[in-house]
Design a protein around this nucleic acid. Sequence first.
DNA 1: GCAAGGTC
Length: 843
Amino acid sequence: MRLIITEKDNAARRIAEILSEGSASAQRRNGVNVYRWGDTRVVGLSGHVVGVDFPAEYSDWRDVEPVELIDADVTKEPTQENIVTTLQQLAEKADEATIATDYDREGELIGKEAYELIREVTDAPVDRVRFSSITEREVREAFANPDDIDFDLAAAGEARQIIDLVWGAALTRFLSLSARQLGDDFISVGRVQSPTLKLIVDREREIQAFDPEDYWEIFADLQKNGSGFEAQYFYDDDGKEAERVWDEGDAEAAYADLRSVDAATVTSVRRRTRTDSPPTPFNTTAFISAAGSLGYSAQRAMSIAEELYTAGYMTYPRTDNTVYPEDLDEEELLDEFVGAGSFGEDAESLLEQDEITATEGDEETTDHPPIHPTGEIPPKVDLSDDEWEIYELVVRRFFATVAEAATWEHLRVVAEAGGRSLKANGKRLVEAGYHEVYPYSSASENHVPDVEEGEELSITEVRMEDKQTQPPRRYGQSRLIQTMEDRGLGTKSTRHNSIEKLYDRGYIEGDPPRPTTLAMAVVEAAEEFADHVVSDEMTAQLEADMTAIANGEETLDTVADESREMLKRVFDELRDSREEIGEHLQESLKADKTVGPCPECGEDMLIRRSRQGSYFVGCDGFPDCRNTLPLPSTGEPLVLDDHCEDHDMHHVKMLAGRDTFVHGCPRCEAEKADASEDEVIGPCPECGDGVAPEEQRGEGGEAAEAHGGELAIKHLRSGSRLVGCTRYPDCDYSLPLPRNGDIEVTDEVCEEHDLPELVVDPDSDDPWELGCPICNFEEYQARTAVEDLEDLNGIGSATAEKLEDAGVDSLDALRDVDPDVIATEVQGVSATQVREWQGELEA
DNA sequence: GCAAGGTC
């Protein structure tokens, strides 16, 4: 038997399809797909199926000095038991095995890991094939010319694994122990995350140190034959053209000169034609950046791309390559889009070009082809709006790369007025070229009319604007990823995760991300004692070492040992400063949690977490001072810069995904609740007068009794509002109310529930007729069920609705459903997909 | 409970 091993299931399936000419069939073995035909089996791994770690005796953070990790053994253990088992069971029966993992360094290492697992059970020969895109020609050629595993290249990858683990674990434990942060909130450090964090921190330092400068700009509206355009005053500053006037007196003088005349004379006209080349094919970074300008976070863009890839609509989204492979026939791919809805016309017009030549980027790699559509086109209804928007972006980017260049005509006009110079730069799109098919890059024109030298133009208005220089801008996520790539930090597959990790660790918040006080302290500590790990030099050095190992000039052991020695020197420095570092980190952690002064004792009030896991604001003087303020029950609190002047307290924001909201000053909220009276609106359906137990209660419900309970609109000290029973806590019946807006109780009464209809913000432009609170709550529950489904990865809104029609109207229903039944009942949903959702639900 | 790199 011949065994073929790929890096992922998707690749296994497609390679089996190609090599078997379509005759391969799939079988599950230990929950892993195995593709078979004749005497061949193909199995896909899931990236690394073994991982590096320290032996068990090092696992307790308190029992081990972090420095001891430097010389600890590093072992490899299976992390994906099912896949390892399946691989070894198949290997036992194999006469030969072929490693067909991805064609890059990490793929070589993953291949070597598979090789070692195979060697544990058999001596059968193992060879290696390499191809950069899974096309018929490349795959056949690769399998016709098998090679051997490049153990040096794999060793280069292992050096990275060991060095990252040892540095990351030792320093992470050191900082966490020094600040006594051992729970979920440990303080992490790493070769990629720390330099990335430093980028953000450095930018924040620039912003904080920024001293704005005043300047003035002067604009004049010029007119020719009724057609107006704007020109800007400029002057000669040491041979350079300058628009900003730094002296107010100078600005006033220029402004006065320009206002003293009513015409300007054109002194120069320059026309230039500029070619605007179409964009290059998408690699991961360029894709994330383009999706970013459509408003998608890096994480979200990648997650949608993965779904579209898995569904077969686009190629693998993790690639560095910006050059289409020779195999890709652009014309054939365009043909697939002819007649395909909104893409059809554009595809046809592209096919009419004399020649179809794709652009090429600078990066040409062997890992995967650039991201492009596969030519299998999804029906629009099968995708959610977001999925479709991303799909369209990928299709149109491909279109753009085979489209013609655009041409612009630039028109520069200089005029003199009152002894001052004015200029205007016009821009006109002459040939739209790729802009016709790619609306994402700006094609905006700036109209400046045709004028000639010596011509007189009337001045209709002169404006002077006072401005200030602005601090540098914070990195947005896609700019950050671009900068990481430029500096060699992380990989196409990990950069977006690294940024996510910084959020999770409490190092950054908001979008664009801003560093917390803790992040500032971590970077400061690292800069002082372990500058290597917080600079991109560590990666640069590692890259150089890995290249040397791959070329056989260095060995894994010497490189790893040198790195260990270097880390020991870091720890020599750290040893004496442990307490000082710990205190600084703790102060910073406290600063991030400080809301304001306690009105009872003057100590700080901090965000704390109760034993039940809920957040509240508590006095740092505890237990001497037991003053607390409640917080809303949804989300994680974040202390904002905004300030309440009455109480000297920071506002608090509750982070809860799409339900994120600003709670405001916790004292204001509590006082508002204390000052408000409960407003009774009707009988409680559980314990009010007139309760009819047998009819109102379903079977199994506790027997309800009439106790005279009434429902009232209540304001809680945590800021939330609800309709609840006046007998609380004896009766805990409650209905939710919106957090914001005035609530009016109307005279209209719901007949079914005997409760008045409510209106939110009755005096606003857009009042919300909430209606009977019970009816409203029932509708709300039905609605969130669909939204819950949509939140599950891979369920678009169309699919969620179809599932609901089939009776799967909640996550619980989805959990209990038979995948095979749903697959037959709901079009476009496979049993495998349902199993994946169920797995996700379990997780 | 550490990292970064694969993968879902």
